[in-house]
Design a protein around this nucleic acid. Structure first.
Length: 928
RNA sequence: GCCCAGAUGGCGGAAUUGGUAGACGCGUCAGACUCAAAAUCUGGUUUUCGCAAGAAAGUGCAGGUUCGAUUCCUGUUCUGGGCACCA
């Protein structure tokens, strides 16, 4: 390269040159070097959609890239990989609609993603790339699934254990010490167990397995031959075609994630996630502590059966005026009296006719009396048992005790059906609305009278347990996660069915490869497309599982595979996972709060329990990047005409607004000639202008093709370069925050980089940088900047770090400081933010090695001590002077400074200060 | 309805632990260079009053704590996000 071409900042040349160099020399390849301190920076890997990346997507990637490069400069061995979450529904839908096989559309999309990512200059170690749809990857997805299938949760040890151990326990003790998580009503002795045939034994084991197959309710549409999602069913008929849809119990695979509810909740205390994220996860888990109370039931004047209810407020037991059971409750048939039979049947038929949607949307009060009564276990009062859809079958026992004075829903129900209300909280209940307080003193409550409600809770619990009428109980909102899909584009299950019993395939037969299938129509009886492949289905004397795993299977463990991506023997070598350990920094969107993040946390805990890894929380710190919104541009057409009116004048006409492509608008000014070319109908459009210009309206909304507001990073990189793009995305605002994209603002950052370049080369003079020794003032600028950039990078405040660079360069320009001892550390500090220009300048300064091997510059304290401002104030009659001092000042330096400070010296008048108070590490109060 | 987060110039945002509010950038105004434009450089830019020096007000709203509050506390309004008959 000649000196002449170095004169001006030619970003496209520089970026191309260094990207090729990085690739050729495999600069970012990472070794599993156990002798070095490690740091693991991970992005949530993308789903390679056909739309490609817009400027919003790389935000998190840039932040993690900066941090990874920063940690590398700090001397860490940094694992920073990337891959693709490549299995899933959208690719399959696309295939069905467009006739392209998901394997090839996925391949194409990945290629496109890769070129877009490469453009931005990330430091990923691509030799560790993973794709969840590759057999070499999903072999281990299947293998981990088999570990889940072969395990159960031992509540005594509070961990997962191999199912073999459970079989031994059953042989010795039956299940009296291991209550069945799948069906609490199953009890058997060791003798019973031995008497069960193999089939029965396997059925029972299935109820314990962490990955299990059971029956769940789904929307089944016979005419379409498929299962439909809730939102595809409207008023009991299918959205497409209007065919009848019925609720049907179908065989489904599940993850028994509920067994990990407590540990998933507790684990939140030892990870660094945002409070909002922790909140979302703990709400989803929905732990509540209460009691399960058993009521005797009288029907047709005879003692009939028992009804269990779950309540978090056992203290209100004497305020119970009615019981409500869910319409699906199994007791309904047996307890309904002859006289009520008809109305109960009518009510249940009504409930069944309503879709989940209607039920949730309307929330109207409905219900029906069963004719039966429950007996209050303490005062033996008869309590009517009702049925209502506001009680959910799936939570607690599917039955509640109605306490109208304390619960608003119960109150509304009682008012609606004219049930008399017992007041147990005195003046706290006005008769108008319920009061859920725990602070009231109980009345009308037998042995609890005079007690404060919250104190009464343990008293009642003790009494219930003493009398055997109930017990303390913890409940969770979280349900087991459905794990099978009747779809093609996913991992096949390594399972074979023989006579109704699921068998794991031997590990040496993994992976079970997904057979190539052209026609992706569903199979018979609600099964997936794989069911159409008779030959593939048959496996010895059994039949393969034809469902596939859901999209979240591969993403639940992929972070392990990056550590040891090419291992053919295990999913990840234990020594290697011990070294890389937890992901130190995980960056991704909030949309995965309760899906991916919970599943991957659970899988890690299982692998930990079974001894395959040494930690049970996968992510040490999680940062959620915000979304970048599109800034749409709107034009206004006078209704019914072809005349467009400028935004400021739109209100005086009756107009329709139309989105216009942001690329033909400069700021808010429309390029009318470009606009006319958009559509033939616009060709003869007329315009009402303001000041001779057509101004567009604007609106912030989601970046989407539909709104013509998508900005492609490729276009930005082409115009301004990757370094400008990276820095601008960071400069936009805090990483965690949602913010709008504004292409105009990018000029400022671009100017900064050009100015940075001019510290080295002048347009006219050429080379300006020298080997000269800097002055103290110049050192101070450098050290101030090092400190600021280091602190800001460390605390993820990349926007203020970029500002600090700008300030520094402006100051150096003002001082005309082009000295190598100042410039070189600056280039190194800029590396994480703008890697290409840094490499080039570092190379020019005469270092033969790349910036990669450089270290983040050390601080020299002596240039940091300075006094800034001081404020004399009067506190409680004493005169104080406050003094701002650099953070790192030592006691000695402070005292020296105090005596040399003009104002303080005047106050002191030669005497010593009475007192020096360190208010903060930055503020010092001197009392005279 | 419940839970969480936020509200600062024309705009994006800064102020790290209570210490000169508005860093940095955009936009804009004025000037330099230029025949002109681009690029670059210099200066101004919270509001009101003032020729100016300067003065007063000012971080959604109303209070409170403090020598001092964008920051802490109480109440309130609005905006964004999450959950939603979970007993």
């Amino acid at each position: 390269m000649s000196d002449g071409s170095k004169m001006e900042y030619n970003f496209s040349l520089i970026e191309k040159k260094w990207q090729e160099d990085w690739k050729k020399n495999q600069v970012y390849k990472v070794e599993n070097d156990f002798s070095r301190p490690k740091y693991y920076v991970l992005d949530m890997f993308p789903y390679p959609s056909g739309a490609g990346l817009h400027v919003g997507h790389p935000l998190g990637y840039i932040a993690s890239d900066i941090y990874a490069r920063y940690k590398r400069l700090k001397g860490f061995n940094v694992l920073h990989p990337m891959g693709y979450d490549a299995f899933g529904l959208p690719a399959e839908q696309y295939a069905i609609d467009h006739g392209i096989h998901p394997a090839s559309s996925t391949e194409q999309n990945i290629e496109n993603f890769r070129s877009q990512l490469d453009n931005i200059g990330f430091c990923y170690d691509w030799s560790r790339e993973v794709r969840t749809c590759e057999p070499s990857f999903y072999k281990w997805t299947q293998w981990i699934f088999l570990q889940l299938f072969d395990s159960w949760y031992d509540h005594k040890k509070n961990k997962a254990e191999p199912i073999k151990k459970l079989q031994l326990i059953f042989q010795r003790n039956g299940n009296r010490e291991c209550p069945c998580p799948g069906d609490g009503s199953i009890h058997f002795s060791e003798a019973d167990w031995k008497s069960f045939d193999d089939r029965r034994q396997q059925e029972i084991l299935m109820l314990y397995r962490l990955a299990y197959c059971g029956y769940g309710e789904v929307n089944w549409c016979e005419a379409l031959g498929t299962v439909l999602a809730n939102d595809e069913v409207i008023n009991g008929v299918s959205e497409r075609g209007g065919f009848p849809v019925v609720k049907k119990k179908l065989r489904q695979w599940y993850l028994r994630i509920t067994e990990y509810a407590d540990r998933l909740l507790d684990g939140l205390n030892k990870v660094d996630f945002s409070d909002a994220m922790k909140e979302m996860q703990s709400n989803w888990i929905g732990k509540s502590e209460g009691a399960e109370i058993t009521f005797e039931v009288v029907s047709n004047d005879m003692l009939n059966s028992e009804l269990k209810v779950y309540t978090t407020r056992p203290d209100t037991i004497f305020g119970v005026d009615f019981m409500v059971v869910a319409p699906e409750h199994e007791l309904i048939e047996s307890i309904t009296t002859n006289s009520e039979k008809k109305s109960v049947e009518t009510y249940i038929a009504y409930v069944k006719s309503r879709s989940e949607r209607e039920r949730m949307a309307e929330k109207k009060i409905s219900g029906c009396f069963t004719g039966a009564y429950a007996i209050n276990p303490f005062d033996k009062r008869k309590i009517p048992i009702w049925i209502s859809e506001y009680v959910l079958a799936g939570y607690g026992t599917g039955a509640i005790m109605g306490v109208p004075c304390g619960d608003e829903r119960d109150h509304k129900f009682a008012m609606h059906f004219n049930i008399s209300i017992t007041n147990i909280i005195g003046r706290y209940y006005t008769g108008e609305t319920a009061n859920p307080t725990k602070d009231a003193v109980l009345e009308n409550s037998d042995f609890l009278n005079g007690m404060i409600m919250k104190d009464a809770i343990p008293v009642v619990n003790n009494e219930l347990e003493k009398r055997g009428m109930g017990k303390r109980k913890v409940n969770y909102k979280m349900r087991d996660a459905a794990f099978s899909r009747q779809r093609y584009w996913g991992e096949p299950f390594p399972i074979v069915w023989k006579e109704g019993i699921a068998h794991a395939l031997p590990v040496n037969e993994l992976p079970v490869e997904l057979p190539y299938l052209d026609d992706l129509k569903p199979g018979p009886g609600g099964e997936g497309p794989l069911a159409n492949l008779d030959e593939w289905k048959r496996y010895q004397e059994g039949i393969r599982e034809v469902n596939t795993m859901p999209g979240y299977a591969g993403s639940s463990w992929y972070f392990f595979r990056y550590m040891d991506p090419h291992n053919k023997e295990v999913f990840c070598d234990r020594n290697i996972s011990d070294y890389w350990n937890q992901v130190d920094l995980y960056i991704g969107g909030t949309e995965h709060a309760v899906g991916h993040l919970l599943y991957s946390r659970m899988w890690t805990k299982v692998l930990f329990d079974l001894g395959f890894v040494s930690f049970d929380e996968p992510y040490k710190k999680l940062v959620n990047q915000g979304k970048i919104g599109g800034d749409s541009r709107l034009v206004y057409r006078v209704h019914g005409t072809n005349e467009f009116v400028s935004a400021g004048l739109k209100d005086i006409h009756h107009t329709d607004e139309i989105h216009v492509d942001v690329s033909i608008v400069d700021g808010i000014e429309l390029d009318i000639s470009e606009f006319k070319k958009l559509k033939p109908e616009y060709d003869d459009a007329t315009f009402i202008l303001e000041n001779g210009k057509y101004y567009c309206g604007s609106r912030l909304e989601k970046m989407s093709k539909r709104y013509f507001n998508v900005v492609n990073p490729d276009d930005i990189v082409l115009k301004y370069g990757a370094d400008t793009f990276r820095m601008y995305e960071m400069f936009l605002g805090p990483v965690e925050q949602d913010k709008p994209w504004d292409t105009k603002g990018i000029e400022g950052v671009h100017r900064f980089l050009k100015k940075f370049w001019r510290l080295f080369f002048d347009d006219i003079k050429g080379k300006v940088w020298t080997e000269e020794q800097p002055t103290d003032a110049e050192w101070k600028i450098l050290h101030k900047t090092i400190k600021k950039i280091e602190e800001d990078t460390e605390r993820f405040s990349f926007n203020t770090a970029v500002s600090a660079f700008m300030v520094c360069v402006n100051e150096l320009h003002d001082l005309k400081c082009f000295k190598k001892p100042i410039l070189e550390p600056l280039v190194i500090m800029l590396t994480p933010y703008a890697p290409h220009i840094s490499e080039e300048l570092f190379h020019i300064l005469g270092n033969s090695t790349t910036v990669l091997n450089a270290t983040f510059p050390d601080l020299k304290d002596q240039y940091l001590i300075e006094s800034s401002k001081n404020y004399p104030v009067s506190v409680n009659g004493k005169v104080r002077t406050q003094l701002d001092i650099r953070l790192d000042a030592t006691q000695e330096q402070v005292e020296k400074l105090i005596h040399s400070n003009e104002i303080i010296a005047k106050w002191l008048d030669g005497k010593s200060p009475k007192k020096i108070i360190y208010v903060r590490n930055k503020m010092i109060n001197v009392v005279v």
